[in-house]
Amino acid sequence: QNEKLANELKSLLDELNVNELATGSLNTYYKRTIKISGQKAMYALKSKDFKKMSEAKYQLQKIYNEIDEA
Rank of each mutant, 00 (worst) to 15 (best):
N2R: 13
I34F: 03
A41S: 02
Y64E: 01
M42L: 13
T23G: 06
A44P: 01
K51D: 09
F50Y: 11
L9P: 01
M53A: 01
A70N: 05
S37K: 07
K46A: 13
I63D: 01
K4G: 06
L5H: 01
I63K: 01
K10L: 09
S25D: 09
A6Q: 10
E55L: 09
I36W: 12
I34T: 01
K46Y: 08
E20Y: 14
L12E: 01
M53Q: 00
Y30P: 01
S54F: 10
K62V: 05
S37H: 11
S47L: 11
Y64N: 03
S25G: 10
Y58L: 11
D49I: 04
E3D: 09
K35E: 08
I34S: 01
K62R: 09
S54V: 13
E8N: 02
A70Y: 08
K62T: 05
L12K: 00
K52H: 05
G38C: 14
L9F: 01
L45C: 03
D49T: 02
K52I: 08
Y29S: 04
A6N: 02
K46N: 08
Q1A: 13
G38V: 15
T23S: 09
T33L: 15
Y58P: 00
A44W: 02
I67Q: 02
K46S: 07
E20P: 06
Y58D: 11
D49A: 02
I67N: 02
L13W: 03
S54E: 13
L21D: 06
E66D: 05
E69P: 04
G24A: 14
E69N: 10
Y29G: 03
T33V: 12
L9H: 01
A22H: 07
K10G: 03
N7L: 11
N7V: 09
G24M: 14
G38P: 00
E15C: 14
T28R: 13
A56H: 01
I67W: 03
K4S: 08
L5G: 00
N27G: 13
A6D: 02
A56F: 02
T23K: 06
K46M: 13
V18F: 12
G38H: 10
L21N: 06
D49M: 03
L45V: 03
E20C: 14
S47H: 05
L5R: 01
T23V: 08
T28C: 15
N65M: 13
A22D: 04
V18T: 10
A41T: 02
L21Q: 09
L45T: 00
L13Q: 00
Y30S: 03
N17P: 13
K35W: 12
K46E: 12
E55K: 07
I34W: 03
K57H: 05
K52F: 05
L16R: 03
N17W: 15
D49Y: 03
N2Q: 13
S37T: 13
K46H: 09
K57M: 12
Y58S: 09
N65I: 08
F50H: 07
L45H: 03
L13H: 01
S54W: 11
S11E: 11
K31W: 09
S54Q: 13
N2E: 11
Y64L: 14
L16E: 00
K48W: 06
K40E: 06
N19W: 15
S47T: 13
S37P: 01
T33N: 08
A41G: 03
E15D: 09
Q61K: 07
A70E: 04
A22Q: 09
V18S: 11
G24S: 13
Y29F: 05
L45S: 01
I63Y: 02
A41V: 03
L5A: 02
R32I: 14
L26T: 03
M42H: 08
I34C: 04
Y43T: 12
K31E: 04
E69F: 11
I67M: 04
A22V: 08
K40R: 12
K51W: 10
A6Y: 15
L9Q: 00
N2P: 06
I67G: 02
L21K: 10
N7H: 10
S25N: 12
A44K: 02
Q39L: 14
Y30I: 05
Q59I: 10
I36V: 09
M42E: 07
N19D: 04
Q39P: 01
K40S: 05
E69R: 14
Q59N: 08
K31Y: 09
L26I: 04
S11K: 14
Q59P: 00
K35Q: 10
T28G: 13
I67C: 03
D68T: 14
V18M: 12
A56M: 04
M42D: 04
N2W: 15
I67P: 01
L45Q: 02
M42I: 12
N7D: 10
I34M: 05
N19M: 15
Q59G: 06
L9S: 01
G38L: 15
S25Q: 10
Y29T: 03
N27Q: 08
E69G: 07
L26N: 04
A44C: 02
E55H: 07
N17T: 13
I67K: 02
D68F: 15
N7K: 13
K35V: 08
T28Q: 12
S11H: 10
N27K: 08
K51S: 09
S25F: 11
Y43Q: 15
N65S: 10
L16V: 03
L16Q: 02
K57F: 13
T23M: 06
K46Q: 12
A41D: 01
L16C: 04
N19T: 07
N17V: 13
L45M: 04
R32C: 14
L13C: 02
L13D: 00
G24H: 15
A22Y: 08
K10A: 08
S37I: 15
K51G: 08
N19E: 05
N27T: 11
Y64G: 02
Y58Q: 10
E55P: 01
Y29N: 03
A44Y: 03
A6S: 06
A56S: 04
E8M: 05
Y64M: 12
Y43M: 14
L5T: 02
L12F: 02
S37Q: 14
E8G: 03
N7F: 12
E55I: 11
K31A: 09
E66T: 04
Q59H: 07
G24L: 14
N17C: 15
E3A: 08
N65E: 09
G38M: 15
A70M: 09
K10Q: 11
L45W: 08
D68G: 12
L5D: 00
K4T: 08
N7P: 02
K31P: 03
K48I: 03
V18K: 15
S54P: 03
Q1V: 12
D68P: 03
K57T: 04
T28N: 13
E15V: 12
A56Y: 02
D68R: 15
E3F: 07
K51R: 09
K57S: 04
Y30Q: 04
K35N: 06
Y30W: 09
D49N: 08
T33S: 11
K48V: 02
K35L: 11
M53R: 01
S47D: 04
L21Y: 07
Q61A: 07
K40C: 11
E15L: 15
I36P: 00
N17S: 14
Q61M: 11
S47Q: 06
M53Y: 03
K51Q: 12
Q59R: 07
K31N: 05
K57E: 01
D68H: 15
K57G: 02
Y30F: 11
L26P: 03
E66S: 05
L5S: 01
K48H: 06
V18W: 13
F50Q: 06
E20F: 15
A22W: 08
K35A: 09
K46D: 08
A44L: 02
V18L: 13
K31V: 06
V18G: 08
Q59Y: 13
S54K: 12
